[in-house]
């Protein structure tokens, strides 16, 4: 089984659209499994109309809770906290700012009144489900939680396991934007990255950063230039950047409002997701799979 990550650096270049179309195209030639590793904004299940088979809670870092009946407002926790997350509130009790707290527990140990506890909390959920083309795994991180990288790693683990059990030839992974911890967790150990870019200075800037990460993680990168017709000079810029970075530019896709319309129709249930394979002539997006199939060793 091969694992292909669809990534971008910059958000909104068309990762989820490309992934959904690739699922449709790949499913005609091999067995596929799918994972959405954008756990902060998981849109692929919408684009595939995936149904949930199982859902399990994702444990986040424990939460600091102050027992106000016991707290004497001595301020030991405020002094002990390395993250400036504790303060004595107007009522004279310790109060935690959950947005600064990193759950280290220094306050718990420092409290002479035994008034502070770390309480386990759920930070999201891991979903295993199905779509028309095969099994799908995704995660939803509760807004505001950290540890998105850990949930991404968990999604990857479950997806790889499920893909093997389904005897899948190809695991397609929709990645998060950026190059930070969730992007790293999504890229570690994949066979290839398909970077979706567009002819904008912002996307090229972020593609360079993504390519830098791929070099560190020793993963080969292929590029699809999406919305190529929006700027001829920008497109030239992308081609030059790919040549300079030694990235294979496997396809160029024209902007066609038909594609977002179709994605919308699938998401709202008016169109069957499998139709994404039938209309892939739109903007030339079918070329992505043709250019990619040799890289992921499928279709041969």
């Amino acid at each position: 089984m091969r694992t292909l990550l669809v990534a971008s650096g910059k958000g909104g270049t068309g990762k989820t659209t490309v992934t959904a179309v690739l699922v449709a195209l790949a499913a005609r030639e091999c067995r596929v499994a799918v994972a959405d590793c954008d756990v902060e904004a998981s849109n692929l299940p919408l684009a595939l109309r995936a149904t949930v088979t199982t859902r399990e809670p994702f444990a986040g870092p424990p939460q600091v809770v102050v027992d106000e009946r016991r707290c004497r407002g001595c301020g030991a926790c405020v002094r002990a906290c390395p993250f400036d997350a504790m303060a004595i509130g107007p009522e004279g009790h310790a109060a935690v700012d959950p947005w600064l707290c990193e759950s280290c527990g220094a306050c718990v140990r420092a409290c002479p009144a035994d008034a502070i506890a770390l309480v386990p909390q759920v930070a999201g959920a891991l979903f295993v489900g199905e779509c028309w083309a095969g099994p799908v795994v995704w995660g939803d991180l509760r807004p505001g939680e950290d540890l998105s990288g850990r949930l991404v790693a968990l999604v990857r683990e479950h997806a790889a396991d499920l893909a093997r059990r389904h005897d899948a030839d190809l695991l397609l992974v929709d990645g998060p934007p950026g190059v930070g911890c969730p992007a790293i967790a999504a890229m570690v150990g994949v066979d290839a990255v398909l970077a979706v870019t567009e002819p904008t200075p912002a996307a090229v800037h972020d593609l360079r950063r993504l390519a830098g990460l791929a070099v560190q993680l020793r993963v080969p990168v292929a590029v699809v230039l999406n919305k190529v017709d929006l700027s001829p000079s920008g497109a030239e810029f992308v081609r030059a950047a790919c040549a300079e970075l030694g990235l294979a530019l496997v396809a160029e896709v024209r902007f066609d409002a038909e594609l977002p319309r179709l994605m919308e129709a699938v998401a709202s249930g008016r169109t069957e997701p499998a139709r994404l394979a039938a209309v892939t002539g739109v903007g030339g997006i079918h070329a992505v799979w043709a250019g990619l199939a040799p890289l992921v060793g499928a279709g041969s």
């Binding site: 902060e40 904004a41 947005w99 991180l141 505001g144 950290d146 998105s148 934007p177 950026g178 969730p182």
Partner: peptide, 13 residues
């Protein structure tokens, strides 16, 4: 940044 996790929290705080 996009998303809704720690870097966004640090921006909105």
């Amino acid at each position: 940044p996009p998303g809704a996790a720690c870097a966004v929290v640090a921006t909105l705080h």
